[in-house]
Simulated assay, not measured.
Amino acid sequence: MKLRSSPIAVVELFTSQGCSSCPPADALLARLGAREDLIVLAYHVDYWNYVGWEDTFASPANTELQRAYAQSWGKSRVYTPQMVINGAHGLPGTHEAEVRALLGQSSLPITIDLVVSENDGEVITASAEPHATGKNAIIWLVTYRAAATVDIERGENGGRALSYSYIVTGRQPIGMWSGETGMEITIPCDEVLGTENDGAVILIQEKNGELPGAVLGAAAFEEM
């Protein structure tokens, strides 16, 4: 099991197979994913599906998350490709220099430690020390596929074979973060990953009312 702890940032890309501007951002996400100090995730949205091609990875939940971010920041529209850094900053996913500059200034206040044990199958224990966060936060578990290539038959990218990485397949809350007591959660890897997923990310993310706020901490594990 490959573990990734103590990242400086979580990069979330909102993308679509039907968007002709998205392939450069998809490629940038793959390059960023090779960095040990970053955790990256690709959320495929469904609002491009009407343009002749239905994204094979799209989910209404991904679109809902992007719109929730926009609402949290007081914005009225969403677009692709968009990169979100640590839940707090959104910018075009094709603006590589701006993305890298923002990452150069990024950090996460909470460190999540991962320990693997093999009693009755692989189990991950995720823990974090108490921290004065000042706000309530949700612990999220996000599963993903490491990579896939898709032959796009129609739409703006019709006729192209496009590669994707860190493709989100699910996102669910698994607990609440307390700054006073910290966190310790045990995750059964086989049950979480199943046969379709290659890895998972644990996020500690603030709430902005009922909307997503800043990411405070993150860690990831992936099958080798």
Rank of each mutant, 00 (worst) to 15 (best):
E122L: 15
V115L: 11
H95E: 12
Q71P: 00
H95S: 12
S76Y: 12
P81L: 06
S76W: 09
G104S: 01
K135R: 15
T94Q: 04
T133S: 15
S76G: 11
T111L: 07
V115R: 15
A61P: 00
T80A: 01
E96N: 00
T111D: 12
T133F: 02
T111C: 03
E118P: 01
L102H: 04
T111Q: 13
Y69G: 02
I110F: 00
T133Q: 12
P92V: 06
N119P: 08
Y79H: 08
D113F: 06
M83W: 00
Y79M: 09
V116R: 15
T111P: 02
T125I: 11
L108V: 03
A126P: 02
S107L: 05
M83G: 01
E129W: 00
G104C: 01
I112E: 00
Q82S: 07
R77A: 13
H89Y: 14
R77D: 09
G87K: 04
G87D: 05
L114S: 09
Q66Y: 02
R77Y: 13
V84N: 00
N62T: 06
Q105C: 09
L108C: 00
E122C: 10
S107V: 05
R100S: 12
E122M: 12
L108E: 01
V115H: 13
R100W: 06
T133H: 14
A97V: 04
S117G: 14
P130A: 11
N62Y: 10
V78A: 10
Y79C: 06
A128F: 04
S107A: 04
Q82N: 08
S76R: 15
P109D: 05
L65D: 05
T125Y: 08
A128R: 02
I124M: 09
R77C: 00
A132G: 09
A137N: 03
N62S: 11
T63R: 14
I110D: 04
L114M: 11
G90C: 03
A88T: 06
A132V: 10
T80W: 05
E64H: 12
E118I: 01
G104D: 01
S117A: 14
G104M: 07
I85E: 02
L65G: 08
T94D: 07
G121S: 01
